[in-house]
Simulated scan of single mutants.
Amino acid sequence: MMSHMKLGVFGSAFDPPTLGHLDVLRQAAICHDHILLVPSAFHAFDKKPLPFSLRLQMLQCFIDEADAGCSLEVCNLEAELLEQNPGKPVYTYDLMEALTSKYKGKADVSFIRGPDNARPETWSRFYKSKEIEEKWPIFTAIERVAIRSSDVRKILESSKVADDLQQGLNMLLPSVQAFIMNNNLYQTGNL
């Protein structure tokens, strides 16, 4: 890695990674040389996503196909931090501290925030949100592609008709679609 690369950190459950995530990455790529995608290992807001290993695999499919405008890398640091404190959420502040330490002298680290987390009612729930703002630059994406993972999951979980299923899958990159279908993820009924 070159000295003082601009490194962005984009955390999410990525359950599943969608075209909405890709749009955030494309916006952030303008200001970053490299972006780490960090799936949450233990969500602070009590969400119950798919197992971490499946989300890592899905995210790898996503970045293998995503054309974001800068290099992307899946980072499983949250799982390592969780191992150090089992059963406790890994907070964004702690993740950013660990990454800043890891890349000290090699990169300028900034936080990439999607439009959902930028909402004041959501951002205020982040542990040490004010300290994050003071300590790291924050790139906040605007909402240009209104696709949420929760919407995709609802469609895939409830779809009884092939057209509905295709609508949900169209919110994803083809490689992620294939991974979901091949592993029968989110779908409760037989298709």
Rank of each mutant, 00 (worst) to 15 (best):
A41H: 10
F139C: 11
P51K: 14
H43K: 05
S40E: 09
Y91I: 10
F179Y: 15
S53W: 05
E97M: 15
G114N: 10
A141S: 13
R119C: 03
R119W: 00
L172E: 07
T92N: 12
S159H: 11
L99G: 10
C61E: 13
Y103V: 10
H21N: 05
M1T: 12
N182W: 03
L95D: 03
G189Q: 13
E80Q: 13
G8R: 03
K106C: 09
T18R: 04
D23E: 11
T188Y: 07
N184F: 05
F52T: 03
T100M: 04
K135F: 13
D23F: 00
Y127G: 03
P16C: 03
W136A: 07
I155Y: 01
M171C: 15
F126Q: 07
L59T: 04
D67N: 11
L19C: 03
L25D: 01
S71D: 12
N184E: 08
I155P: 00
V9E: 04
G189A: 09
R125Y: 04
M5S: 11
R144F: 00
A29H: 01
A68F: 00
F14Q: 03
V90C: 09
H4R: 13
T92E: 11
D163E: 14
K88I: 13
K102F: 12
K88A: 14
L36W: 01
I142Q: 15
E143V: 08
S53P: 02
P17S: 04
D151S: 14
A41F: 13
G8K: 04
K104E: 15
N190H: 08
D151C: 07
K48H: 07
M96S: 12
Q27K: 06
P39I: 08
T92R: 05
K106Q: 15
K102S: 10
I30S: 05
T188G: 13
G114S: 12
E131Y: 10
Y93C: 09
P89I: 11
N183Q: 11
Q27L: 02
P39L: 07
R125H: 11
K102Q: 14
T92M: 15
V161T: 08
L172V: 03
T140Q: 15
E73P: 01
Q187T: 07
Y103I: 06
M171F: 04
L36Y: 04
L25Y: 01
T18I: 06
L19P: 00
N184Q: 11
V9H: 05
I30V: 14
S159D: 09
